[in-house]
Write a protein that binds this DNA or RNA. Structure first.
Lengths: 148, 148
DNA sequence: TATTGTTATACTCTATAACTATA
DNA sequence: TATAGTTATAGAGTATAACAATA
């Protein structure tokens, strides 16, 4: 049951186990960063998603949760002055959620607080970094297009 | 504000953005797989962690939540016959959680149900797969040792 | 005394269903 | 009639604090 690197190429299953371990550590780093900034996990995810304005419905999709939950989550972020609701004039049913300056700054702080991931990435040589970037883009592209 | 691949090597910040996107998709695939098997997110994580017996305390650490929460989570898994508690004879305060045959099989099913990640990994050439494996091991190793 | 696991409690997250306002 | 967002509610996850059993 090979789990680590071997002279021959690892199978997709081997890589998946490694990827699973890595994503667990990544997620933990994200959670810790969020908590240091007084954000729950979902709040931090929302703030980081709001690089540009998004409808409530889109945010529910991105968090893969029911749309009804977004109301309260955004309520709390709005009370903290991190986001604002703007009715879409093209379709007055839609509310676009927009990050305020504070919200945008906090999203950046979340990323900055992910010391573990950041430091680990700094240990990569430029060529390995380029390689990782390229492979992740291939994987991500394949996974998102296959969902359409 | 470069986000995608470019002729020069991407910075750690560039790669981090890509990694964030990828981990979000990965996590969603895991959640969907868990829900198809009637497991909550935390339950699925626990089941997948129990390749070998672990103390309640260790599980809390792995899920980075308070130890008190593990009690109810394990209660539910135990009621479904997926895990068992065994008092550690070396230290009778400790309870080791052990996956049953059904629990082990279900953990494997969770991994099998992650079609998106699996299919994406299948698109990698052997050399890129080997490269990804090696890079992830470097990153994971760096992040876990820096936490000690 | 310190540690493991449990219980009780309160807050947050999440899904479901019923409602409103717009389309 | 269909859709975007809201409200109400119930079930699950989580942290805090206090407790029993064991070390």
């Amino acid at each position: 049951m090979p789990h680590t690197s071997s002279p021959v190429s690892p199978t997709a299953v081997d890589v998946m186990a490694t990827l699973t371990d890595f994503c667990r550590v990544y997620q933990q780093d994200f959670l810790t960063a969020a908590q240091r900034l007084d954000l729950t996990y979902s709040q931090a995810k929302l703030v980081c998603l709001l690089a540009e304005p998004r409808a409530m419905r889109e945010l529910a999709e991105a968090l893969s949760c029911d749309a009804s939950n977004i109301t309260l989550l955004i309520d709390r972020l709005e009370q903290r002055g991190l986001v604002e609701r703007h009715t879409d004039q093209a379709d007055r049913r839609v509310k676009k959620v927009v990050a305020t300056a504070e919200g945008t700054a906090l999203a950046q702080q979340v990323r900055d607080e992910m010391h573990g991931v950041r430091a680990a990435l700094e240990t990569l040589s430029p060529s390995r970094r380029r390689s990782l970037q390229s492979i992740l883009e291939q994987l991500h592209g394949h996974m998102t297009t296959s969902l359409d």
